[in-house]
Design a protein around this nucleic acid. Sequence first.
RNA 1: GCAAGAGUGGCGGAAUUGGCAGACGCACUGGACUCAAAAUCCAGCGGGCUCAACACCCGUGCGGGUUCGACUCCCGCCUCUUGCACCA
Length: 844
Amino acid sequence: MHYPFSDIEKQWQDRWSSEHTYRSTEDPSKPKYYVLDMFPYPSGTGLHIGHPEGYTATDIVSRFKRMCGYNVLHPMGFDAFGLPTERQAMVENIHPTVITERNVSTFMRQLQRIGFDFDWTRMVNTTDPEYMKWTQWMFLQIYNAWYDADKNKARPISELPIPEHLSDPLEIERYRDERRLAYIAHIPVNWCEALGTVLANEEVDEWVGKGYTVERRPMRQWMMRITAYAQRLLDDLQTLDWPASTVEMQRNWIGRSEGAEIRFPVADHDAVITAFTTRPDTVFGATYMVLAPEHPLVDRITTEEQHITVVEYRNAAALKSDLERTELAKVKTGVPTGAYAVNPATGERIPIWVADYVLAHYGTGAIMAVPGHDQRDYDFARKYSLPIVQVVGPGSIDDHALTEPGTAMNSENASVSLNGLSTDEAKRTISNWLEATGTGRARIQFKLRDWLFSRQRYWGEPIPILFFDDGTKRSLDLDELPLVLPEVEDFNPKGTVESALSTVDSWVNFTDPKTGKHARLETNTMPQWAGSCWYFLRYCDPENTDRFASTERERFWMGDSGVDLYIGGAEHAVLHLMYARFWHKVLFDLGHVSTAEPVKRLFHQGLILGEDGRKMSKSLGNVLNPDEVIDQVGADALRLYEMFLGPLEASKPWNTKGVEGITRFLDRVWRLVVADDGSLRTDLQDVAPTPEQDRVLHATIKKTREDIDALSMNTAIAQFMIFVNEFTGAEVRPKSAIERFLQCLAPFAPHIAEELWHRMGHTESIHLSAFPEVDETKLVQNEVEIVLQVNSKIRGKAVVPVNADQAAMEAIALADATVQKHLEGLTIRKKIVVPGKLVNFIAN
RNA sequence: GCAAGAGUGGCGGAAUUGGCAGACGCACUGGACUCAAAAUCCAGCGGGCUCAACACCCGUGCGGGUUCGACUCCCGCCUCUUGCACCA
């Protein structure tokens, strides 16, 4: 029969809660450890089986660190703003606040059943007005800041030098607005009519996959100037202990490329086309130019004859989705504008085309096409019979473009020659020439784009900006925050580009008490990412009403390296983790936080797949509910099983038989201490462990310590099983060894460990006890088994004293019958002796 | 296409300054206990050869290489997963 997990788990959870066992301490004499989970979105479906995986891992680490004498912060909260709640509210016709409360309480109940050591007094909820207040305040910090490129940091907008020629307040305001880190722009965005909102590029796939239609539409939007931080976001990746794949993804996302921008005058026209290229050394081979269909110069330079063709082409391109313009469109299309540009290097007139293989939002939206050395340009030139010139050798451009570096050729004019130079030299030389002649300059281009920050939804943080009738505006002061959402009758999409907030006239339209002027409030709200950019700061000091967190407590917990360990899914590798880094850096520049990076060590747990090896989903019917698993086998078994399944970072399938193996193990642990009748076992005695028992015990302590630090929970549990196998077979079970084993087990299976600890006579919680130390002397073995080899093949084994010298080992090896057999008739040419490992005779 | 990571028994997985491949668990087989079953306990469990033991041979995706010795290091492939994808 199973041990009584359902009784003891509930009982200990209640007792830990009433005794505040896991209340975070802030003892300045002890070091701190901040271990963080990515907080969940409280969906209506409740916790799924994947949630406890990462949470259990952090729970183990936090319990272990607490037992090692650290002040530990292991908090939990809810990322509760977002579209699904609003949609659920619409379906059920209940206010999102109520839905959120309901979902949060379900999540909390489920989390508590698993026995996590979260300090619930520090719980945060992004929709709580007291939390929102600081999200809005931080937004305004960003809004009221500009990026000082000289000092390479953000500074308050009040410190922005205003050019002397500006005197009109509106002009000064515009000058500032153009430099704020949060600003309004009119750009094409992903608009979803059915959802009634714009979506971030990264969100589009998800909703299109669910059958929604997303179109590109130019709209007024709030943007975050994350691009100002591109270089720092890239550089600081080196300081982080993050998964290589995530660092790589962020690097790609930032997409730094070095090159030059080159100015091409339009022939017989005053316009100039600026093109960005990473290969300025090939400028002599630029035989045509291409503008993106959306490029602002297209209208100005297109000739009368080409006008209709170009307009038609542009309209067709506008209707294409991004998918059609990229993935599906392997065949490039384009039309000539009829205009010509002058290649500044060759002085030749080259035709200007419009083609949608050039993206409006990257670089300058225009390229110099070098078909000889760029495959895309090559394909296009071949299709439309444009000239192809080779300016880099060696090799032939008969079949394809030569994109590799080489030696410049055919690249000479009256004032500069690249001929004979390597690609690197040629780049330097031409960049200097461009600069000297005013036709261009070296430049670094990033792929990263500014962050689209506004949503046209109800269920998000309102943007605290007032617009006055005279065209001026002001941001709300701290004493006016939080700006809370108004009650609405109906938050369904209105088919307009404004959120449901715009329908609440009394909220939107009012007389500003501070200025006495008539004002309109911004009706856009913030995206879900906003609240998750800084929640880890709020955990440090969640009750604070004067600041998002006091300086002292922020410094105490964020220390000099920020969050010590952050565990969450890899799906946030670029979005949340990039946004949060940016947000944190702005706060850092403005002096509000003490670290340049929020998270020192990051780890992604893998997916738990269905028993069939496929991703769990409702439609496949392979979804598991943690509540059911706990009902059947208990929380400790659920925790242990999820950890034993395999490496934390790997995706691995659930296996019900495997769960049985874990329950069997826990039953064995129970029986190590408790007899069938429920009393303490009589063979549990105050005796000294045997040397072998001591060795297993200390190996277990050592492995537990090492494996928790390495997040290798599965191998620690394997060691627990070895311990239990060893001690189950013992006639007498030394109490001291069993107790120390329970302390090792405690972070993993907190309930059973606590119960047995108390049954063995302790009155204090095992989770507040000091983690056992390793006695290395107990691990030293007197004798070791070595391998005897002849010509590198294993021919025997021998047990030798651990300190046996080479001669002794050789002698033992030579005495082995099988070794002798294999050496018969051969001469030993070489002897390899590795102390404690092997003896190898090379003979022929 | 580019980038990152992975490939080990029937299954999940262990093992890295190069030194006994398969720890631990699951499944399976046998035994003990039982009238019997379940549970529990004990033992076995990569493949080949062998009645069996000893001995021997093969074996970490494939093909090469370095080395006394390679799951581990190097070169070239194949497959899978994830991410990015006309980024000039």
